[in-house]
Amino acid sequence: MKKIAIVGAAGRQGTCLVNEAVARGYEVTGFVRNAHKIANSKAKTVVKDLFDITADDLKEFDVVIDAFGAWTEKTLPLHITSLQHLCDLLSNTKIRLLVVGGAGSLYVDPAHTVQVMDLDNFPEAFKPLAKNMGAALTELRTRNDVLWTYLSPAADFQADGARTGNILLGGEEYFVNEKGVSAISYADYAIAMIDEIEKADHIQKRFSVIGA
């Protein structure tokens, strides 16, 4: 049975990942900043700031999921530095690192020169977040010493959506379903993430997922 560590396990996406992994029978440990925030009693809890996590803390795990999120102007650069920290801890190990990514860095052209966040209709309010997450991905691509996987969600990422199990996988480019929609719930996103743990189809690659 694989042992999975989830960093940021108390957040809404982290919670969905914990629940999905536990439901599939994995041994799950959530790293959180508040001991009372993990609702799933079948998951273990470690109270520790992400930047205080050490290589010793992670050495017994098979997979680390990075579900860290930052939303304020002051904390947005932490998307880059937090991922750097986790990569350094897992460097030259067999421990996989799966990253909860963003949709803004998906490409909209075959040449991969234009990203979703470059489009005129991309909301200005989300551009700083998209740029920081995109920069983190760019640096992640240079880490040949880490078994990383980056999963981008649909453009409409729905925290409170239902778990349907109806998902479509894509690659580096933005895509839509038969209805012309790019949307997915946090719960369905969690399915794709845990599926990737089981299948290991995207080592040192970025892929994407939307609702069917």
Rank of each mutant, 00 (worst) to 15 (best):
L76V: 04
L140K: 09
G170H: 11
I203Y: 10
I184Y: 09
H79K: 06
L98V: 14
D188L: 05
E139R: 10
D120S: 15
R96S: 15
V18H: 05
V176T: 12
P128A: 04
N121I: 02
V116L: 15
D109F: 12
A200H: 06
K205R: 14
N132E: 15
V108H: 07
G25P: 00
D145L: 10
N34H: 14
L119T: 13
W71P: 00
D118I: 03
A212D: 14
Y186R: 09
G11A: 09
F31C: 03
Q84H: 14
A200E: 09
T54C: 08
A23D: 11
H112L: 04
V46I: 14
G170F: 09
I65S: 05
L89G: 02
L89N: 00
K94L: 02
M133G: 03
H112S: 09
L50D: 10
R206Q: 14
L97G: 08
L151A: 14
D56Q: 14
K59R: 15
I65R: 02
T81L: 12
N144M: 02
I4P: 02
T93V: 04
G11T: 00
V46G: 03
K74D: 14
I80L: 13
G101P: 01
A43V: 13
D160G: 12
E172A: 14
V209N: 03
L78H: 05
L50F: 05
V116T: 09
L129V: 11
G30E: 08
Q204S: 11
G69Q: 12
L151H: 10
L97F: 11
E173P: 01
T72E: 13
E172T: 15
A9D: 05
A103L: 04
T149C: 15
V116A: 13
K2E: 10
Q84K: 08
K48W: 03
F122K: 07
L151T: 15
A67P: 04
A67Y: 02
T75P: 02
H85F: 08
D145K: 13
V176C: 06
D160N: 15
A21N: 05
G69F: 13
V47S: 08
A183Y: 06
G8R: 06
D109Y: 07
A55N: 00
I4M: 07
L151D: 07
E139Y: 11
K2V: 05
K48E: 04
D88L: 02
L147F: 11
K94R: 11
G211T: 01
K2S: 14
L97E: 09
L78C: 00
A9P: 01
N92M: 03
T72D: 15
E60G: 02
F68K: 10
M117E: 10
K37A: 14
A111T: 08
D201V: 01
D120C: 01
K44N: 12
I203F: 08
L17G: 01
E73N: 12
A9W: 00
S41N: 13
N19G: 03
H36G: 09
L97W: 11
G170E: 07
K205M: 09
G161D: 09
G14A: 10
A200T: 06
